[in-house]
Design a protein around this nucleic acid. Structure first.
Lengths: 341, 341
DNA sequence: ATTAGCACTCATGATCGTTGAGTGCTAACG
DNA sequence: CGTTAGCACTCAACGATCATGAGTGCTAAT
């Protein structure tokens, strides 16, 4: 549909605009060493590209900037994936050595590094616990009336919660409850826990404890928290260095989304496997219509172990970011297999 | 040193400026219903107050704004503590019911509410583990070569870490190590753990395990992480609504400090008990010279259980903030005593 | 000691040309 | 027919100039 020259021009405009954040004129393209057309020719093509909705003009006497559709075409057809630099590889390798004994730590640390390498914001979603299962459950007495409930998932993730016991539940009861729960719940996927809790566990519990409803609801609460994936953020303020966000009001909306976990997770809904790019309004969240989000899922054996997202302006270095995330997701998958399999 | 009228004028200027964020002129003070002096009289006093370093003039033909010294005088001598509103009390009470089974959760949730009530940023430091002691230690096997180490403090706080075991350490060894650690370390304050680990524990461990140095250093790492207090943030973007921070560059520096935990903790160094106010440069951190920090410690039985800080512009509603923190610290102390004592 | 009067200062905002980057169109060119 | 030189046109950005008015400091009267 597009001529070879038009594709070349679109690519040049996107590249230039990503670098400079300023509208690109026909003359500056014509001056590139790999271009041998006059500004006038390029202007004609630019007019065509604008008619196709791939370019926009901020005002009559300015150059062109890519539209969302233009970025989309660029990402789908024209992009050149950036290789990962030698020094960046070394940097990312470092995390393997440093945080290898803490899966979530490794993932979030990786995200921190990526946010530093790219100067964008990185967002990490912890394991989707829908697919993880319970490895161990324990009640630890703290005082006469309180205990710490500790839940260990098979990913090595640990969640804890202090609970206040109802009157009349002693140390022995506690130990028996913990034993029972371990027996019944070990290996059970999280999404089934509630069911098991209220059928098998409840029956047995009722036989030797009175107020077991209260205890059950406490346990359910404890386990529910585990179901919600954890979110890590890094480099949130990087957005402030982008020239298009030098206006505080625009930035406020974005940072607000980043601060509220539920709204943040909305961004990650209905993502499919692998690397995905969502440009501007494609995100479907009003406040970040001026941003793009590149996401990569990390998984092993069909189990989703985490999602890393990079949020930047629509004028984002897509090639570099995609290259980095591609490398990283492979590396983390390898790390996981070595550690937990 | 200051005349009654001068104190009144200073107080009026600070109040007005806190509300409007604009330099206060003599005429606007004279118009207040509780003032019966002409603008000229007030101007004379204002000149005196400026000479004393309590007021400043942005430029010759503008009104006055308080200097840091001026705010200091205001906070020390003139402030009227704001009572806590009925609805705010109800809001804060809610957290007692909601999060009562999770100490750190309760504290950080309280901070979230305060940041919403005040429209400033709230920063929470978890318990200073220098004074907390070890309640329980446990090793939980995960795979053949990995295990989860779980540390429980007497505040009910739980820390965990996945560690990779050296070759040749089996399930039995693990159980024995955990037993030994529990025996030797229970009740030991964190700042003594390292010593005990390398004397008592090391001796016994050496008798039946070979590579115990490796294990010991792993354990030390695990426990070290616990020593660093946790930091929670809420309402970081509130600073963006302040008119004096409508310039992105000023804000960037502040948000950068908030994002980096170590720099953030620097702010909380050398705080004494109770409520403290640090105005502008008194904070000693370059990037937040335009901000004030009000902190309140929460403690019971001489044990420091947490610190809540409110960060806002120097033009902060000191009375309201101090009132809130005062109420809150009392409330949280009561909550703690009921739960863990 | 207080206040009215007045000259003076200076940030703010509006108006108005100037500049220059960039365009679209037309006509000439190979 | 595709490409290009030439040219008139547009318009954001910038700087200079000026009027406005809020607020001051000083002096002299009360």
């Amino acid at each position: 549909m597009l001529s070879e020259r038009q594709r070349m021009i679109l690519s040049a405009i996107v590249d230039d605009y990503i670098r400079s954040a300023e509208p690109v004129g026909s003359r500056s393209i014509s001056k590139r060493s790999d271009v041998s057309f006059s500004p006038a020719t390029i202007r004609n093509d630019m007019a065509d590209l604008e008619e196709l909705g791939l370019l926009e003009q901020p005002h009559t006497s300015a150059g062109r900037i890519p539209s969302i559709k233009g970025y989309r075409y660029y990402v789908d057809h024209l992009i050149q994936l950036g290789g990962v630099k030698e020094q960046d590889v070394r940097r990312l390798r470092g995390l393997v050595a440093e945080k290898m004994n803490h899966w979530e730590g490794a993932v979030s640390h990786a995200a921190t590094i990526v946010s530093q390498l790219t100067n964008y914001t990185s967002i990490v979603l912890g394991p989707d616990s829908f697919h993880t299962s319970l490895k161990h459950f324990q009640l630890l007495p703290l005082t006469d009336t309180t205990a710490v409930a500790i839940v260990v998932a098979n990913t090595g993730h640990v969640e804890h919660r202090t609970i206040t016991l109802p009157e009349g539940v002693g140390m022995d009861d506690m130990r028996r409850i913990a034993g029972l729960l371990n027996e019944k719940l070990t290996g059970v996927p999280f999404y089934k826990v509630k069911t098991v809790l209220y059928t098998e566990v409840a029956n047995e519990l009722r036989s030797y404890i009175d107020h077991c409803e209260h205890i059950l609801s406490l346990l359910e609460d404890t386990l529910k928290e585990e179901t919600e994936p954890k979110v890590f953020l890094s480099g949130a303020t990087n957005i402030l260095t982008q020239p298009e966000f030098k206006d505080v009001d625009k930035v406020k909306g974005i940072l607000d989304v980043l601060e509220e976990t539920p709204r943040l997770m909305q961004l990650f809904q209905s993502l499919s496997e692998g690397i995905q790019v969502r440009i501007g309004t494609e995100n479907g969240v009003e406040a970040i219509n001026q941003c793009s989000l590149v996401t990569a899922t990390i998984s092993a054996d069909g189990q989703l172990l985490g999602t890393i997202g990079i949020l930047g302006p629509t004028r984002m270095e897509y090639g570099k970011v995609i290259g980095l995330l591609d490398y990283l997701s492979g590396d983390l998958t390898r790390l996981y297999n070595r550690l937990y399999k």
